[in-house]
Write a protein that binds this DNA or RNA. Structure first.
Lengths: 342, 342
DNA sequence: TAATATCATGAATGCGCATTCATGGCGTCT
DNA sequence: AGACGCCATGAATGCGCATTCATGATATTA
């Protein structure tokens, strides 16, 4: 009986190469890995056969035999958000440099936990990069418990797990931009637009905000805080609410640029002059923030470096078994005009 | 001798499940695939064991045994360009829907053709999505010749190969926006900023441009054409050159939004009023185009749908063995203010 | 020159799984 | 009631490769 329909024979295998070169498959394998001693002429013959036949080792077979996949998995809540772009860039370049392939999957937070498990794991990757607020903590714990290499992006590990993570200096960045608002522009009634509740970045930025207030002897006023959800519309709605309430504020710190955009819409919609009457600052320095009118003063997040560094830590974890428990990358204040600077 | 260091035993295998459930691995496999008849109680026992042990089939092994990988490869010249974002979104969602994983790799065009072949291929994917001007035509031809499913994004296949592709209606879109410039704003000296030479999108957009001119009895003037390379700086330089030459034009059609941005910089830098003195239009409708000042009138490219459709065609090719030779998705004119409209 | 170490190479094994083939138990039909 | 067919299940095979073990050839030493 011929080969089953279910098993399409792969193009050209090591056997073909071996036959062509008149050697055994073991030798082919040895040549491919340039690992042990193979005589000069045999090696040349094999290489020639490889070239002529266009042989490419079957990676599934190689994975199976070696017990490793040389691919890194990236788990995201969603793809296609512009915030991720620089991160992709960093991850891709670092992974390529380290000789790993990249497998990307999204795990929708709302999804009703299908019976099919996480699409990424020990079965198809050697290590995982996880960006998310919503990884199942149990799942994480299971992976980590089994010694599977995982590095978290933009989030520290939940519940006492000591999973390495790399993120940015959220607190210090926020502190710096608020300091600027107070010291340079004399603002004292600074409203805060937070991210989704429970979001760690948002939380730390809020900490920086409070820290700056305290350092300048300005009391913290809970009335000046609302959630912008890291999205334009909710932020806009929140600011419109403030406006209609007649809340007294002379600046807004949006915990991310998207909500800063929403705030800007609300402000200009209500005829407020930015930055004349109200200073506006954001966080992240996304692509579009420089196009705001006025251009947004914000805190640059070194997202590309976060991606790179995360891959490096992961590779270190996979190969050496150890990684920095936490890497904090410095932010940078980007002064444009929405704060009041020329 | 114990298991070699090189072969870390995978967490839990079908054997473990089988033992636990008191059945054979064949039965475990059958249950996992809910394919053939398995008695109710046995199936339940197996499922229970699977749950208790946290069994996840090893995908490399499965690939090897089945001769397929259930993953789609995406080959790009680079990641991290905002143009790709909506495409990612479309590809990811369609792939997920069809039950495929997504493997992404970049193939730098400049790279000196390392001995290591293309990172994506028959060895680790069931089919390939390729976006690029710079795939090695020979490589493409080889893949296609071996019957490996490939779908091209935003480019038709080179050299007589009948590889399916999906792209947008470049010609019609360009035609439409030029018609608008002529008919609505009375422009007749429309300069053209092309993409890199050889770029197919750019070429077709140029065709639409000429078509519109011809339809309105306006002679084509080669002096009004320069390359913007699809990038901001070269475009800016090109327009500055025009300006210093005193070239007579009352509108610019940039073949993509990035070069439109460069043109805008050159124009406003020279004190030209846009759209008062010069109308400016672009192509693609990228994220930032609405933030230009004035907001850019452009042609919306349904990039997300391109991604989706490409996956659909690829899946069709992989499963049914056939796909549309070409899919052209309609564009849409996005009128903002840089053309002169209120 | 005989014995031994060294090296290049081939044969054989197993990675984890899907699949085919073989078998035993059961129901069904005449 | 006997023979046959069907169904559930287990045993065995192979996917393509890396790796280990065995072997024959060559170089080395006494």
């Amino acid at each position: 009986m011929p080969v089953s329909k279910m098993r399409p024979k792969s193009a050209v295998t090591a056997v073909d190469v071996a036959r062509r070169a008149g050697v055994s498959i073991a030798t082919v394998s040895r040549v491919m890995h340039r690992t042990v001693n193979v005589s000069e002429d045999v090696s040349a013959r094999v290489l020639e056969a490889v070239a002529e036949l266009g042989y490419v080792p079957h990676s599934a077979a190689r994975s199976l035999a070696q017990g490793k996949t040389t691919t890194i998995g990236l788990l995201l809540p969603e793809i296609g958000v512009d915030f991720f772009l620089p991160m992709f860039r960093g991850i891709e370049s670092a992974a390529r440099e380290a000789g790993y392939d990249l497998l990307i999957a999204t795990q929708s937070p709302v999804e009703p936990r299908k019976p099919s498990r996480c699409p990424l794991g020990q079965h198809n990757t050697d290590g995982l990069l996880i960006f998310t607020d919503n990884v199942d903590a149990a799942e994480l714990s299971r992976l980590h418990g089994q010694g599977f290499p995982v590095v978290l992006l933009y989030n520290s590990s939940p519940g006492g797990l000591d999973i390495p993570y790399v993120t940015i200096e959220n607190r210090a960045g926020a502190r710096q931009v608020i300091d600027h608002l107070i010291e340079v522009h004399g603002r004292r009634h600074i409203a805060l637009l937070t991210g989704p509740s429970g979001n760690e970045d948002s939380h730390r930025r809020e900490l920086g905000y409070k820290e700056s207030l305290a350092a300048h002897g300005i009391p913290f006023d809970p009335a000046l805080v609302a959630s912008g959800e890291f999205r334009e519309q909710p932020a806009r709605a929140a600011v419109e609410r403030w406006l209609s309430q007649g809340l007294d504020f002379d600046a807004i710190f949006a915990c991310d640029d998207d909500s800063a955009g929403g705030a800007l819409l609300a402000l200009t919609g209500a005829g407020k002059n930015v930055p004349g009457e109200v200073s506006l600052v954001g966080f992240d320095d996304t692509l579009v923030s420089r196009y705001f009118n006025p251009p947004l003063t914000t805190v640059h997040a070194p997202t590309e470096r976060v991606g790179q560094e995360a891959v490096r830590q992961l590779v270190s974890l996979m190969t050496a078994g150890k990684a920095e428990p936490a890497v904090l990358l410095p932010t940078e204040l980007v002064i444009r005009q929405s704060c009041g600077c020329a």
